[in-house]
């Protein structure tokens, strides 16, 4: 599948499960979008593509209250969390986040709003195509905590009525930023 059709399929499926997909031309544009959504501290753990692009400064310039060193206690008070994405899976609209570092997990589980920067060049067709980068992640690191994230947290446990945001994030924003990171093994 051509990358453009992968991007389209990914976006369609992600939107279908309640995520919002935003195409951005730059980090700055993404930061402006995030600033418009977040009301309170934003957790931004350290990750390679973020460091390389000076993400923290760009976010602060957009007026965001960025927390990059936090504990589980302080994380609980944030309004949003922002990370990069290792890669994405088109046919289910899923993000793959190598979350072994605890900060990544805190930033993506506790706040009600989750933001993920994704380079659209890093989209595979389906769950089986995801196995190759998954295997390489497992070969690279001795220990792993890897999350497939598909839409916001949901439940249908009361009368089978689909309800968003039970324990995890209530909103998921996927920011497509071309040229942000081409390495499937890095966030």
């Amino acid at each position: 599948m051509m990358n453009q059709s992968l991007i389209e399929l990914f976006s369609e499926k992600a939107v279908a499960v309640g995520a919002e997909v935003i195409s951005c031309t730059s980090i700055a544009e993404a930061a402006t979008f995030v600033a418009g959504k977040v009301d309170g501290p934003l957790l931004v753990p350290t990750f390679p593509s973020g460091c390389r692009s000076g993400l923290e400064t760009v976010l602060r310039d957009a007026g965001l209250d960025v927390l990059n060193a936090f504990s589980s206690e302080t994380a609980g008070r944030a309004d949003g969390g922002l990370t990069g994405t290792n890669f994405a899976i088109a046919d289910t609209g899923s993000l793959v986040l190598e979350s072994t570092a605890e900060d990544i997990r805190l930033a993506t589980t506790l706040p009600p709003k989750q933001f993920a920067l994704l380079d659209p060049a890093k989209i595979v067709a389906d769950g089986l195509a995801a196995v190759d980068p998954m295997r390489r992640l497992h070969q690279r690191d001795a220990r792993n905590y890897i999350a497939y994230i598909t839409g916001p947290s949901r439940t249908a446990d009361i009368e089978r009525v689909l309800t968003i945001g039970v324990h995890g994030p209530k909103e998921l924003f996927i920011l497509l930023v071309p040229g942000f990171s081409s390495d499937f093994l890095e966030m």
Partner: peptide, 26 residues
Amino acid sequence: QILPKNATGQLLTSYVTWIRGAVPCG
């Protein structure tokens, strides 16, 4: 791939969490 489709008719659940070994905690 098959489990969520056959369980709840979802393409995939919101989360699939792959855990190997003792990861950092605090």
